[in-house]
Design a protein around this nucleic acid. Structure first.
Lengths: 245, 245
DNA sequence: AAGACCGGTCGGCGAAGACCGAAGCGTCCC
DNA sequence: GGGACGCTTCGGTCTTCGCCGACCGGTCTT
């Protein structure tokens, strides 16, 4: 029964290094990065990054795609992202946060709204989660699930559930929010909802992982969630958009 | 945004060693082991185990309790067990399985029914999951949750849901079964159900993680799940009970 | 076609850490 | 109380691995 141990250890080793961890955390934005970008983000020489990237690909954590002289890397799939999230959510708060004005502004924007691999996170993500629960569209009395009213709500929004049911991915999952320390929605529906809000033009992607509520989106989203528009107002210092860490 | 990386790496390091991985996998049976037992299970000297155990405790993966000259260790909580499961479920099949008769018999018993930290796993665990889904007691069309009929089913079984709702732990979760390569039920309800079936005398704990269906439990469980008793019959070579790996 | 650029491979350096045996401390049993 | 037992601490050895700079091959630009 202990025969899995070497494999488990080998797998855990992939994340047991600051450089590789930095790479995986950077890729949590859900996009494909080039090897060079990841090397800069991780603060190591390109040669070092190249080696580490190969290990991560071999280990099944990352998927790669070569285009011309570039090598694009992304997390292998949503389950890997979930795993990295689970692990990252378990570690204590970051050591000593950067407190420059520029970083503070970017941090505020990210704390307000960002993507977490492929779903919505930050204060806005938690807010959506709470509102859905409060209005009885979501139920967690016997597992985390959409109520019949919740299914209607999705339909009215134009969000089709059928394709999501066909996917192998769990429909709904909790994801611990780093900044809020509370849960927001992940899973197939969490991802679809985020994508759909962007399709509707209610949200737009900012720099890096940051997400912004559009002028037309704010009242629309507030109405859909049964909230006042003021409840969705971002803090004043976050309106300039976020920068990459 | 990459400030978490050292913490994440440090945490992953805890499982990135064959000895520590073996220890955690052994503790997946949900019981408390002594330091010496774990040293033998991991195949290292007591001094080595002592050091590694301290690291695991410091890292928050394990909880310890000292009694006299013994030091009892267990996984810190269910979320840690879930995490280890998630990781172990991701690694490929074990390298070269032990094929002695004794081991084969123990393996068959474990493959049929065992606990996975605190819930039911193995063929029986998957069977229960499938039956609940098939009878409409469980629903995953919009998240994994009990249906109203499922709640009644729990009530008839004498399984109280109220205390589970109060717990911070997710009610229901999928857990990938190592031997079946399919999902069985985890989460607060998965654990409660397993404990309740043992309370009812339908199941008894065997050696190690093994679980056996009792003579009276087999027809009772079959009836509760709407199955034929024959559907629950274990393979002939598994009836002798399982041994510890 | 020349030059810039991206990325991979190789050799070597240095630090981290997994392991053991020996010795010491506290607990339990006869 | 004496001896067995469980566990921990310490010193030392040895392997692993992350890192870099240098060099090379393939790709895109001008």
């Amino acid at each position: 029964m202990t025969a899995w141990a070497p494999g488990l250890a080998q797998f855990a080793t992939l994340l047991a290094d600051t450089t590789r961890a930095r790479i995986c955390l950077a890729l949590l934005d859900g996009r494909a990065w080039t090897a060079g970008e990841l090397a800069r983000a991780a603060g190591v020489a390109p040669s070092t990054a190249s080696e580490q990237l190969s290990r991560l690909v071999d280990g099944g954590l990352l998927a790669q795609e070569r285009q011309g002289r570039h090598r694009y890397l992304r997390l292998a799939d949503a389950s890997v992202a979930q795993l990295v999230e689970d692990l990252a959510g378990r570690v204590s708060a970051p050591p000593v946060p950067d407190r420059s004005l520029r970083a503070a502004r970017a941090g505020a924007a990210l704390a307000y709204a960002r993507t977490c691999y492929d779903h919505l996170a930050g204060r806005l993500g938690v807010l959506v989660h709470d509102a859905l629960l409060h209005r009885g569209l979501l139920d967690r009395s016997a597992g985390l699930a959409l109520t019949p009213a919740g299914e209607r709500w999705c339909a009215e929004l134009g969000l089709l559930l059928a394709p999501l049911r066909a996917a192998r991915r769990p429909m709904l999952r909790d994801c611990l929010d780093w900044t809020e320390r509370r849960t927001h929605l992940s899973g197939a529906l969490g991802a679809a909802l985020c994508a759909h809000l962007i399709d509707l033009g209610w949200l737009t992607r900012g720099v890096g992982r940051a997400v912004r509520l559009t002028p037309s989106g704010a009242p629309a989203l507030a109405a859909a969630l049964g909230l006042e528009a003021a409840d969705l107002t971002p803090p004043a210092d976050a309106v300039t958009g976020g920068g990459r860490a």
